[in-house]
Amino acid sequence: MALLDRNLIHRNVTFSDSDNALKMMAEAMVAQHFVKPSFVEAVINREHQFPTGLPTGGITVAIPHADWTNVHKGTISVATLKNPVAFKNMGDPDETLNVRLIFMLAVDEPHAEVKLLQDLMGIVQNQAALQGLLDAKDDDSLYNRLESMFRDVTVGTGKKESSK
């Protein structure tokens, strides 16, 4: 099972606000049949109740997600933003963060989210890796960098992906 799909990687994009970003990314997941149409509203509603902006020490990220019942097949959508978008801070919802990278998660099993978030935390704490994603010169370069980062990350299969 491939975690990443080229149709869900968005490089150097512009969104008007966080809701627009979530809607556009989630709708791409629906179009590729990874998630149910209910995922779009679910991920936006969840973000309003439980913000996912994460101050990582430089390049700020958001990790939006919705309940596994809205997911057909686990995946991650990634967007590098041309201009930062305001997301509320996960740890302090009264604080607004200027997010440059969005990692939208779709997990297809209950409890798989915790494991995926743990794996993702190791990635987002690496500022050099995050900068490398923002600096990708073309879509292929961004995809290849992400593929390398996520090679051993799974979204609900319970097994590590083998390197190919």
Rank of each mutant, 00 (worst) to 15 (best):
R145F: 04
A21Y: 07
S141I: 11
K160E: 15
T56R: 01
K115W: 02
Q127V: 06
H72R: 09
E113M: 07
T75H: 11
V155Y: 15
D67I: 04
D67K: 06
A128R: 11
A136K: 10
M24K: 15
W68T: 03
F87W: 06
F15K: 05
E109R: 15
D19I: 03
Q118R: 15
N12L: 08
A2K: 13
T154V: 03
G122T: 07
F103R: 03
K160W: 05
M149S: 12
L22M: 11
D138Q: 10
D94H: 09
D108S: 12
N83V: 08
I9P: 03
V153M: 12
R151F: 03
N45M: 09
P93Q: 11
S141W: 00
V40Y: 02
P84M: 06
E27P: 01
S38W: 02
L134S: 06
D119C: 04
M121K: 01
F87Y: 15
E41L: 04
L142W: 12
H111G: 00
V153F: 01
H65I: 13
G158V: 02
Q32S: 15
S148F: 02
D19T: 12
L117Q: 04
H48F: 04
L54Y: 08
D139K: 13
T154D: 15
P110S: 09
A112Y: 06
K164C: 01
I63R: 07
L81S: 07
M29K: 03
S141V: 14
I102F: 10
M1G: 13
D19K: 13
W68V: 07
I76C: 03
F50R: 01
M24L: 14
F150S: 04
L22P: 10
L8V: 02
A106P: 07
V114A: 10
A79Y: 05
L146D: 08
R100W: 02
G122L: 10
G132A: 06
V85Q: 03
S77N: 05
M29W: 01
G158S: 03
K164A: 12
N7R: 15
V155N: 14
G58E: 03
D119A: 09
E161P: 14
I123W: 05
V153T: 15
T52I: 04
T96M: 12
E113S: 09
R6V: 12
D5C: 09
D94N: 13
S77T: 13
L22I: 01
N144C: 04
Q49W: 00
K82Q: 15
I9Q: 01
D135I: 06
L22K: 05
D140C: 02
E47A: 10
I76T: 05
K88G: 08
M29C: 12
F15E: 04
V153G: 03
T52M: 03
K160G: 13
D67Q: 07
T154F: 09
I102G: 09
L105S: 05
L142N: 09
D92C: 06
F39V: 08
L142G: 10
N45A: 14
L8M: 08
A136W: 02
N7W: 00
N144H: 15
L105C: 10
T56I: 08
V99T: 11
D67N: 14
I102W: 11
N89I: 00
H65T: 11
T80V: 09
G58M: 07
T52W: 03
K88T: 06
K160M: 13
Q118D: 12
D140S: 14
H48C: 01
